[in-house]
Amino acid sequence: MASLKRLGFDDSKCNGCGECMTACSLAFFKVDDRTRSAIQVDKTEGGWHINVCDQRCRLCVDECAAKALTMSRLGVVTLDKRLCVGCLACVAVCPINAMRFVPGLLTPFKCNVCGACVKKCPTGAIGIVAEEM
């Protein structure tokens, strides 16, 4: 049975502070720029929604002609930047915009479940979940 590792979240606990996005962009890009975060916090009518790859649907893996997107041994959809040709088909096919892209960057990016955001979340709205598929 394959394992899967993903971010779990509880929208009701989210206070919209965005510390997760700062942590993510610092971890990925060494800058505090929330557009460069693989996790996004979106305002909803009643509060906040945490948007991040669920590692399950894998439409991006199927769409990737360069086979740059694969499942890692830990069960995380992982982008190999050395293989990526930057076509952004994965960004287009992602149903929840969790495959992220900033114009001008050569490759897209996504959550690799590193946990940087989990450590910074003040309300415990995010956590790492490991499960069997």
């Binding site: 990526c84 040709v85 930057g86 076509c87 952004l88 088909a89 960004v91 287009a92 096919v93 892209f101 114009p103 001008g104 050569l106 490759t107």
Partner: peptide
């Protein structure tokens, strides 16, 4: 050595945005 800059476009961002629009 193929990558998004192999064709060395003058304005990668505009190219990407047009491509992404059509992909979608």
């Amino acid at each position: 050595s193929l990558n998004a800059m192999s064709n060395n476009p003058a304005d990668l961002a505009t190219l990407q945005e047009a491509g992404l629009r059509l992909h979608r």
